[in-house]
């Protein structure tokens, strides 16, 4: 373990007030105040009513593209599909060279080599204009496999060149109250993200909020994911409905904000699944800016997990550029 990891780990244990056992975590997580569901939903709805026009809208659209994890997570994925996904991520709108590239491509672990090869020199830190390779791991999407399999899955993707790992938490264990097990699993996967040169792939912890049933559970899972060392907390796999919703994302952002106040550390948030229109995506930008601040609107702290959002944003960009409405014939069929 590196020094920072040890420091982080010790601070988490200090926050929890002891070893990361089921009992200690339960005492801590259940001591967090409950969520005011009505207030949360009203706040989210209120943030969704902002009218973003002209230059602000143009800025928002470009920023949204720069925050997207262009995703394909289908059983039918092929190397060819991954290559076309990469082409789309690097050059979302071939007719407009001013269009930024997306933050990352997100694929299954076995597709990572093809994504790395297709990206070539375009691969890099999204903060510096590159496109990263994110891989889902740990028996995505269900997470129903032994820890050994999950760790092998993760290490495999990292060895193949994944820059970011999207892991799923064990929702069954979480709902059964075995918080210690979920915590230990995240810590172990984080360790598996380490490369041989000592650097580490970024870890996104998928909470799968659609299966957590209550806002209180979402808040606890967010805390758990952050305490265990996740670099990002992510709403959903996209395979379960409801996926990302604005209230859930707002709730997770509030946890991130509280963690920042408590420790000074910045954790990222990634809503994924079900965000299909620019209008919805802009609501998320507003929510981020109002909850944790505009500094979070950067690829290292906020992402959209989406497959069809990019096309809608491109249509809106074309509308702003040409002054007339565009149509689906003018973007790719993914």
């Amino acid at each position: 373990m590196t020094l920072t990891q040890i420091v982080q780990g010790e601070r988490s244990l200090a926050v929890i007030g002891g070893e990361a056992t089921d009992a200690n975590l339960r005492r801590y997580l259940h001591g967090i105040p409950g969520v005011d569901a009505v207030g949360l939903e009203q706040r989210a709805a209120g943030l969704g009513t902002r009218s973003i026009k002209t230059t602000s809208k143009a800025w928002a659209l470009d920023r949204i593209i720069g925050l997207i994890d262009q995703t394909t997570l289908e059983g039918a994925d092929t190397p060819g599909k991954v290559r076309s996904l990469v082409a789309k991520a690097v050059t979302p709108d071939p007719a407009d060279p001013t269009c930024p590239s997306t933050a990352a491509v997100c694929v299954y672990g076995d597709m990572v080599p093809f994504a790395v090869e297709a990206l070539g020199s375009a691969r890099g830190d999204p903060e510096k204009g590159g496109v990263a390779v994110a891989a889902v791991a740990t028996a995505f999407p269900s997470g129903r496999a032994s820890l050994a399999v999950k760790l092998a899955d993760t290490a495999d993707a990292v060895a193949a060149g994944a820059d970011e790992i999207d892991m799923v938490i064990d929702r069954g264990a979480f709902l059964a109250g075995r918080y210690g097990m979920v915590y230990d699993e995240i810590v172990a996967v984080k360790e598996a993200c380490r490369r041989t040169d000592g650097t580490s792939a970024h870890l996104k912890v998928i909470l799968e909020t659609g299966e957590l049933n209550t806002y209180d559970n979402v808040r606890r899972a967010s805390w758990l994911g952050i305490l265990a060392g996740g670099d990002f907390i992510k709403t959903s796999t996209g395979k379960v409905a409801p996926a990302a919703t604005l209230p859930v994302t707002l709730l997770m952002l509030e946890v991130v904000r509280d963690w920042r106040r408590m420790t000074g550390e910045r954790v990222g948030v990634k809503p994924a699944g079900g965000i299909r229109s620019s209008k919805d995506a802009i609501k998320y930008l507003v929510t981020v800016a109002e909850t944790v601040g505009e500094e979070w609107l950067t690829p290292s702290l906020f992402r959209f997990g989406a497959s069809s959002l990019t096309n809608d944003v491109l249509l809106q960009r074309q509308k702003l550029a040409t002054g007339h409405y565009s149509g689906p014939d003018y973007v790719t069929i993914d």
Binding site: Q318, G323, H324, Y325, S326, G327, P328, D329, Y330
Partner: peptide, 9 residues
Amino acid sequence: PWLASHADV
């Protein structure tokens, strides 16, 4: 004019 210029019409 919006319908005439709409690319999806």
